[in-house]
Amino acid sequence: MAEGDFVIVHGRFSGTGLPRNWIAADIVRIADGVLAEHWDVLQDEGARADSKRGLPMFGDSFADRS
């Protein structure tokens, strides 16, 4: 998603060897065609057992397939 000088990217990192995938949001500000600022948020992906509504936090299925 982009608006003005800001771009937000949301994704899932898998295959890292960690017990759970990471869900990430990166926010960057571009100024004069150059990366000016960067912020990010990382968290472990919730499993089916963690979901009170029964919905995955990313996509349309749980990565754990349980």
Rank of each mutant, 00 (worst) to 15 (best):
F13I: 12
A36M: 08
R48C: 08
S14P: 03
E45W: 01
G17I: 03
S66V: 11
R20M: 07
D64P: 08
P56T: 09
E37H: 10
R12P: 04
S51Y: 03
G46E: 14
D64V: 08
A63K: 01
P56Q: 03
A31F: 09
A36G: 11
A36K: 03
F6Q: 03
V41R: 00
F13E: 14
D64S: 08
G54Q: 02
R12D: 06
F13S: 11
G4C: 02
P56D: 10
R29P: 12
F62V: 07
R29D: 12
D60C: 04
W39R: 02
A25L: 05
V41Q: 06
D64M: 07
A24N: 09
N21R: 00
A25Y: 02
A31G: 12
D32K: 05
F6G: 00
D40M: 04
A47R: 04
D32Q: 11
D5L: 02
D44G: 14
D64E: 15
R29Y: 10
M1E: 00
I30F: 12
G54S: 05
A31L: 10
A63N: 05
D50I: 00
A24D: 14
F62G: 06
F13C: 11
D5R: 02
R48L: 04
A2Y: 00
R53K: 04
L18Y: 13
G15E: 11
H38K: 01
P19T: 12
A2H: 02
S61D: 15
A25F: 04
D40R: 00
D32W: 07
Q43I: 15
S61L: 05
T16C: 09
D5C: 01
L55N: 05
I27L: 12
D60Q: 07
